[in-house]
């Protein structure tokens, strides 16, 4: 499937898809999207890159083994529940923080956001590790 057209266009396509998936992840709390969908988009981006250019470049680009990424996501998601214990509210209760980075510009940060990033990493890692393993030639 490694046609010239695909190989030329895939780096751009993949970067756009990953960026888009991050946008979907971050805006997911208010617009359609979120960690799960974002993760699926990113996973298809990497799978596509693997189909077009081979598995080795994808693994190099990811640097970490995808299943480790997934494991880290799991860790992050589980960890995001703990600050709530500090506030004496049940595990995984969302906590919010609105720092002002410039005059009148608030950036809403929260533990659900960290949780969602964890979800994103788990989905990306698991799916990419399956897809890449399957794409690999024995």
């Amino acid at each position: 499937m490694n046609t010239l057209i695909l190989r030329t266009i895939v780096p751009i396509l993949t970067s756009l898809m990953v960026i888009y998936s991050i946008i979907v992840l971050l805006s997911g709390h208010n617009q359609p999207g979120g960690g799960f969908i974002g993760g699926l988009i990113a996973a298809s981006a990497f799978a596509l890159y693997g189909i077009a250019c081979g598995v080795a470049p994808v693994r190099r680009a990811l640097y970490f083994h995808p299943i480790s990424i997934s494991g880290f996501g799991m860790f992050l998601a589980a960890l995001s529940g703990f600050p709530s214990l500090y506030e004496h509210v049940p595990y995984l209760t969302g906590l919010w923080w609105f720092p002002e980075i410039a005059k009148g510009v608030e950036v809403p940060l929260s533990t659900p956001l960290i949780f969602d990033i964890g979800v994103w990493l788990v989905v990306v890692g698991s799916l990419v590790s399956i897809a890449l393993a399957l794409e690999e030639k024995v």
Binding site: G28, H29, N30, Q31, P32, G33, G34, G35, F36, G94, W96, P108, S110, P112, L113, F115, D116, V119
Partner: peptide
């Protein structure tokens, strides 16, 4: 209370 307008996502993460 969850600062999100996307109900599906709020249910999922909060």
């Amino acid at each position: 209370i969850a600062h999100g307008r996307n109900i599906v996502n709020v249910i999922l993460v909060d």
